[in-house]
Design a protein around this nucleic acid. Structure first.
Length: 107
DNA sequence: ATTTTGACCGTGC
DNA sequence: CGCACGGCCAAAA
């Protein structure tokens, strides 16, 4: 089993994503900031791509500006978010500002 | 150690 | 609104 080194950026990112509440979303930039590297959103995407763990709700990570962002299966991502009560537009989240989650949020 | 690769971001046209 | 370009970062090759 190839496990990421403890304390690595990947481990911290996965930890953050796992903390995103159901029905809420966070941007790659937000995750990067919460992981301690505000300018590492690029790497967050790279890590997300390798993250195929079902324990990590990677579908709750969206792009900046409330855009849907990428996914291995875009349709699946939409369905998962809608299943959590998230309103998903054609390529954006109309309620993005309301459901955006950060560590500063009371939850 | 160096190069390539991305589920990105912001700006400009 | 859409597309092109540069910049940014860590992981993988």
């Amino acid at each position: 089993m190839s496990a990421p080194a403890p304390g690595s950026f990947e481990t911290r990112v996965l930890h953050v994503v796992r903390r995103i509440p159901r029905g809420r979303v966070a941007t790659y930039g937000d995750v990067a900031t919460m992981a301690g590297r505000p300018r590492a959103w690029r790497a967050v995407g790279t890590i997300m791509r390798t993250c195929r763990s079902p324990s990590v709700p990677c579908h709750r990570v969206v792009a900046a500006g409330g855009r849907l962002g990428g996914y291995s299966d875009p349709l699946r991502k939409r369905r998962l978010l809608q299943d959590e009560g998230v309103v998903v537009g054609p390529t954006t989240l109309p309620q993005f500002a309301a459901i955006r989650w950060t560590t500063l949020d009371t939850s």
